[in-house]
Design a protein around this nucleic acid. Structure first.
Length: 1110
RNA sequence: GCGGAGGUGCCGGAGUGGUCAAACGGAACGCGUUUAGGCCGCGUUGGCUUAGUGCCUACCUAGGUUCAAAUCCUAGCCUCCGCACCA
């Protein structure tokens, strides 16, 4: 088939390029830099298919374009070689992941080279090479130094098919991103995390500045998921808590520091013991501890608080305990005395078994007054370093916490639960709380009486499949615990529910059924109270009128919405006529009835007693009970013993429901001091109020979570950490990097690295004692988070990269698929910012421009993939048509950001074109001067094509190249213009154009030529006009010919045109003759010698010649 | 449910106020070339009408703005993608 061997040409030029290293670049060039990068591939075992070819072709065209535009273009390639698929595939093939991957990479390189891509191959990166992952480990340790890495036991996502934990980003719809049929399980494990959330705000803010596709930007914004709201502390009321409060030096019953606290706690119903310690003037440690152990009881619900010296006693007490207690609070506490002249200095034993203390208490709070004059300034830190815990420092009301009431001390004692809400304005409408069924602290809230019910509920949830959970049936059970409303101090039940997310906010929500759909459904289902607190905006008063005749109601301004069976009316009245109407109703209403109206900020009631006495009320806290009572008695019912909230019963009326039960903004009602504010004002006011009381604070909440980076798999970068029995977590010293991934491991028995004992069991680098290595590896997204930096300096073995990165970065044009919007692209942005703050970089964003290419679909219409079996292999297509043909076709079907469907027929078209083109250039070309038309067209094309390529509209550029080729074949063209044409085409078809460039007598590479510049002065508008006229005339001629053929069966072969004299230059006999394949003669209308037997010249008009055919 | 992108002739796909019955490619059909087919070249591919004209109907549907709409606005329908009980 191939009279032309495109394959031979391709091989020839690929070799030449490689030999001459023409695509290798360095930083010394005087040209401006430009960095083009495609997302580096994961080298799968099955190699490249046409879909990959499309991706790389898109980038290569752009790189070649920029290179020809005299930029110093860095265009590298590398391999994201570590990862689970290789490990799994290797296990399946019974080979080693290393071998497997190396083979795959070799294969990839060969295939990519065959595509004619203009990479700087000298910079190749393989992330599985220790030269590369060494720097992963290096950055891991740097991040750790900076406090960006921590190890924490937390609920994490686990995929059992991957046999490892996953980052949040790798969970899609509750499924593993690699195994869409596998539910992710939540496990409670200790893992390594990176504090990506530290950068949440910056990551979000800078999105707007990026020149990225809008949808990617939106996806990232959604992923980061910022929401502003208020965090409100809800006190958890659990009767199981009991308190032991230990006073300090010289505490007495009269002026005991703790009496106020005792009262506060006892008022809440807790058991509180305040032992009066013996010998307060000259305390003896053993004596006091014994006294306490004898007189107080300790269990897992005990909170032990010690003030000042009492905290020392507390430590000693805890040291002696058999079972751990719930919490230790030291208030102005210490572990070392600060003054020598206190008598207890001598009677105390100042040695502690801190380990024992640590183990005997679950939670430690260290309260520090920043102005404390009594104890040593470093006391709090000393305690923390000895036993851990959380230091809370602030200014006490009175120094050393000696005031009667210290709110922080009370807050520390109480169990609190911070709850995030975006609607603090609805705080007064909270009627219950719901904690996530997956919350780690859930069982602490479940009381013994509710234990069975709660467990049954949890069991049921566990046995339900993810799919069924998605049906969103809200369910829950009461935990038995209560919380106290931070403002009204009402008792509010805490439920556990399946609809609350454990990992958003704090995992517990305040439920406002009146103003939240989910809470409403839940409240309905379990018959929980619904309390409206926001009145929806309306221009009209709503009223459900009773005891008034229809004729009396029918007033011009009154809209009757409905007339009920009982002859009552649902009406709406514009507020403008409301006052008038109120009076009218008052008069017309029959005795023994009452009516209510909604007002702009609440409700208004008119009662007409049986004796005709009229009482009017605005509904508020003061009138609520009387209105409720009248409501009952007017209905001939017994009044409620405990009056009901009138708004709540109004909300049960379907007519008022739309005002009272909704999720919109409005005016606050039922909200004490905050009534009459609108929602926005109320949000601010309530938040400020809570802040003043220490009960809440304005917060920003992000959906973005810290990045869980440990993986319990083999084929990844070993995490450079050692666990020493004595020193704890020890980072591998920098000079011992890389921690090499050991070849000798066995697969299939848990974490593979664990099976290499000589790797695992080592000496601690600090104390030389017994230690074990971390056997988890890093998420491979760690590798791809900075590879673009390594390309700038890929062979540096002293540093991850040096100033070359500053020269080349940021990536000017990044190209890749949208699937990475919320994974790689977020991690890479995070990394860049973190490295900037570590002093490695001086810029904020890694990728200036991003282009999302479309996906290639197979002939069957589905995305091309091996598993679907619809792949087309570049090698095979190349054999038949040449790779230039394939490249040309791939980018000519549609705009490269759209999906493209492969078509065997379609590529024939591209092939025909290239064959024609090759033959045209291949024949002996006379070096002539270009015609005006060619000059005009070629310059116009340069201008347009340049613009098209710059904006990735390759398909349009190709159409223009095809049109331009038509012109070249029709007209005289200079060698220079032919060369220009080849340059324009070169981006798409680099091999053929090199060959033809050479045929034209050039010795250099066309790849290194300058991009043609349009000479706009050569663009001739007249030529456009000529083209138009020729086009139209041809149309007319063909039309006539067609009619003659069809109607008269004639096939004329002579055509005469009669043209208006001043237009005659626009017509060209040759072109018309050639295009019509007939003999065409052109006459001016005023030509006396014209041949015009039918007087068709009389039909001539400007732009339209008369035509005669025969 | 929320957010985003879209719906154009037989198909793929340009076009985003007049230059539009709408680029380009594919396909089909016709003509030419050829022994024939392929390749190649030329043409046709909404309807009616006409020796090159004129008119009508058309760019998801229905309204609207405009002298003028595939293009702008409003509402709806549909498709694709992303997120999804986010408090």
């Amino acid at each position: 088939m191939a009279e032309i061997s495109f394959n031979k040409i391709e091989k020839k030029w690929q070799k030449k390029w490689e030999k001459a290293k023409i695509f290798n670049v360095n930083e010394k060039s005087k040209k401006k830099k430009y960095y083009v990068l495609e997302m580096f591939p994961y080298p799968s075992g099955s190699g490249l298919h046409m879909g990959h070819a499309l991706n790389y072709t898109i980038g290569d065209i752009y790189a070649r374009f920029k290179r020809m535009n005299e930029l110093n273009v860095l265009y590298p390639m590398g391999y994201d070689a570590l990862g689970l698929p290789a490990e799994n595939a290797a296990i399946k093939e019974k080979t080693h992941p290393k071998k497997f991957t190396e083979r795959a990479i070799k294969n990839f390189i060969e295939q990519q080279k065959a595509l004619g891509l203009s990479y700087d191959w000298s910079r190749i990166i393989k992330t599985c090479s220790p030269d590369y992952y060494k720097w992963n480990q290096y950055f891991f340790l740097k991040f750790m130094e900076k406090g960006l890495i921590y190890r924490k036991k937390a609920p994490v996502n686990f995929c059992k098919k991957c046999d490892t934990v996953l980052a949040n980003e790798q969970v899609h719809n509750g499924k593993c991103w690699r195994h869409l049929d596998t539910d992710v399980e939540i496990k409670y494990l200790e893992q390594w995390f990176i504090k990506t959330t530290n950068y949440a705000e910056e990551l979000l803010k800078e999105i707007d500045k990026l020149d990225w596709p809008n949808r990617i930007k939106i996806m990232q914004k959604n992923w980061i998921g910022k929401s502003e709201g208020t965090e409100i502390d809800f006190e958890i009321f659990s009767k199981r808590n009991n308190y032991v409060l230990l006073h300090g030096y010289k505490g007495t019953p009269e002026k005991n520091f703790f009496l106020w606290l005792k009262n506060e706690l006892e008022n809440r119903g807790y058991k509180v013991t305040v032992p009066l310690l013996p010998n307060t003037d000259a305390p003896n440690i053993n004596e006091q501890v014994e006294y306490i152990l004898k007189n107080c009881s300790f269990d897992e619900n005990t909170v032990l608080l010690g003030h000042s010296l009492g905290s020392v006693v507390a430590l000693k007490v805890i040291e002696k305990l058999k079972k751990p207690i719930k919490k230790l609070i030291t208030v102005a506490g210490f572990v070392i005395p600060n003054t020598k002249n206190r008598p207890y200095i001598k009677t105390f034993n100042w040695k502690y078994d801190f380990n024992k203390i640590k183990n005997n208490v679950k939670e430690i709070l260290i309260l520090k007054d920043i102005n404390d004059l009594v104890i040593r300034k470093d006391s709090a830190d000393k305690i923390k370093s000895a036993i851990g815990g959380e230091v809370m420092s602030f200014k006490a009301k009175e120094q050393h916490f000696c005031a009667k009431f210290e709110p922080e001390v009370l807050n520390a004692c109480i169990d609190k639960f911070p709850v995030f809400t975006t609607r603090p304005d609805t705080l007064f409408g909270v009627t219950f709380m719901v904690i996530s069924s997956q919350h780690p602290k859930l069982m602490e809230l479940v009381t013994s009486s509710q234990k069975n019910e709660a467990n049954n509920f949890l069991k049921k949830l566990k046995s339900t499949k993810q799919e069924d959970l998605d049906k969103f049936d809200k369910e829950g059970v009461f935990t038995g615990s209560y919380t106290i409303h931070p403002i009204t101090k009402e008792k509010i039940p805490i439920w556990v529910g399946n609809f609350v997310l454990a990992d958003y906010g704090s995992g517990m929500v305040m439920a406002v059924p009146a103003h939240d759909q989910r809470d409403f459904e839940f409240a309905k289902k379990y018959n929980l109270p619904i309390k409206p607190v926001v009145l929806k905006y309306s221009d009209e008063s709503y009223s459900y009128v009773m005891g008034v005749d229809e004729k009396d109601i029918n007033k011009p301004d009154v809209k009757i919405i409905e007339k009920t069976k009982d002859n009552y009316f649902k009406i709406k009245i514009p507020f403008a006529s409301f006052e008038q109407y109120k009076e009218f109703i008052r008069d017309k209403m029959k005795p023994g009835f009452w009516n209510e109206f909604s007002t702009k900020n609440g409700f208004y009631f008119i009662f007409k007693h049986k004796d005709g006495k009229i009482e009017k009320f605005e509904l508020n806290d003061k009138t609520n009970d009387i209105i409720d009572k009248y409501g009952m008695t007017f209905n001939n019912q017994e009044p409620n013993k405990i009056p009901e909230n009138v708004y709540s019963w109004l909300a049960k009326n379907s007519f008022y429901k739309e005002l009272l039960i909704h999720q919109d903004q409005g005016i606050l009602i039922n909200s004490k001091d905050f009534n009459d504010l609108n929602s926005e004002e109320a949000k601010a006011h309530i938040t400020i109020y809570l802040e003043e009381k220490g009960l809440g604070r304005k917060t920003v909440n992000y959906k973005l979570k810290d990045w869980l980076v440990s993986r319990q798999r083999y084929w990844g970068t070993p995490i450079p950490i050692i666990y020493c029995e004595k020193c704890g977590i020890v980072p591998v010293p920098e000079n011992q990097l890389p921690v090499k991934l050991q070849d000798k491991v066995s697969f299939g028995k848990g974490n593979p690295l664990e099976t290499n004992k000589s790797f695992v069991n080592i000496k601690c680098p600090n104390c030389k004692g017994k230690a074990k290595r971390e056997t988890d590896t890093m998420d491979t997204f760690f590798d791809s988070s900075w590879y673009f930096l390594r390309f700038t300096d890929s062979k540096n073995n002293k540093k991850p990269f040096d100033n070359k990165a500053i020269y080349w970065m940021p990536v000017d044009q990044y190209i890749g698929g949208a699937e990475h919007a919320c994974m790689h692209l977020i991690y890479a942005r995070f990394f860049t910012k973190a490295l900037r703050d570590l002093g490695f970089l001086n810029f904020n964003e890694p990728f200036r421009k991003l282009f999302n290419q479309g996906m290639l679909h197979g002939e069957d219409g589905y995305v091309m993939s091996k598993s679907r079996g619809n792949v087309v292999l570049p090698e095979e297509v190349s054999k038949k048509y040449g790779i230039d043909t394939a490249r040309l076709f791939l980018v000519s079907v549609a705009s490269p950001d759209k999906d493209v469907q492969w078509s065997e027929k379609g590529i024939e078209g591209s092939y025909r074109f290239l064959k024609k083109l090759y033959e045209f250039f291949n024949k002996k070309i006379e070096n002539e001067k270009s015609s005006k038309r060619v000059e005009s067209k070629i310059n116009k094309s340069i201008k347009e094509i340049t613009n098209d390529i710059e904006n990735f509209r390759y398909n349009l550029a190709i159409i223009k190249l095809r049109n331009l080729f038509e012109v070249l074949t029709e007209e005289k063209t200079s060698k220079k213009d032919l060369e220009t044409y080849l340059k324009l085409l070169h981006l798409f078809c680099p091999h053929i154009t090199e060959e033809l460039w050479e045929k034209l007598g050039n010795k250099s590479f066309i790849s290194l030529q300058k991009w043609p510049q349009a000479d706009e002065s050569k663009i001739d508008k007249n030529i456009e006009k000529q083209d138009e006229i020729i086009e139209q005339t041809l149309n007319d001629i063909f039309n006539i010919l067609k009619i003659m053929r069809e109607k008269q069966g004639k096939e004329p072969d002579k055509i005469y045109l009669y043209v208006i004299p001043n237009e005659i230059s626009l017509y060209n006999e040759n072109i018309l003759s050639r295009k019509t394949n007939k003999q065409v003669k052109i006459f001016a209308v005023n030509n006396k010698n014209k041949f015009d037997p039918d007087n068709k010249s009389s039909k001539s008009k400007p732009g339209k010649p008369g035509i005669y055919v025969e």
